[in-house]
Design a protein around this nucleic acid. Structure first.
Length: 107
DNA sequence: TATCTGACGATAG
DNA sequence: CCTATCGCCAGAT
């Protein structure tokens, strides 16, 4: 299957739900290209589509450079704790814990 | 085919 | 916590 790398990344990203935060590596592995975290970032950087890019952070929990403010704002809006432009070590994996209890279980 | 770039990842100091 | 270095991948020239 030679699905376009971009398409795969966008699809995986669109699969995320409210409060879900994944890293570039996780996303890359999800599309079947573990180790292509860098390529994933390149795709998200060029895409203008209405994708939840703010749900993607670095492996260290660091937010996107240049959009930290916006990402932090959007994440907090979903119930994700952000500190100093950084989310908890692993705030939460695919729907585990930590979530905006004052909001629905998901979007 | 070769070379460069970049919203990455891990390790070392 | 920060910077520096190496490794990795996809896309563009």
């Amino acid at each position: 299957m030679s699905d376009d790398f971009e398409t795969a990344v966008r699809s995986a990203l669109a699969r995320l739900s409210r409060g879900e935060v994944v890293t570039y590596g996780e996303l890359a592995a999800e599309v079947g290209r573990p180790g292509a975290a860098r390529a994933v970032g390149g795709v998200l950087a060029r895409t203008e589509a209405p994708l939840p890019w703010w749900r993607v952070v670095t492996s260290t929990g660091r937010l996107v450079p240049g959009n930290e403010r916006e990402q932090a704002r959007l994440l907090e809006a979903e119930g994700v704790a952000v500190t100093s432009g950084t989310v908890s070590p692993r705030t939460m994996r695919k729907g585990s814990q930590a979530r905006g209890r004052h909001r629905g279980p998901n979007g």
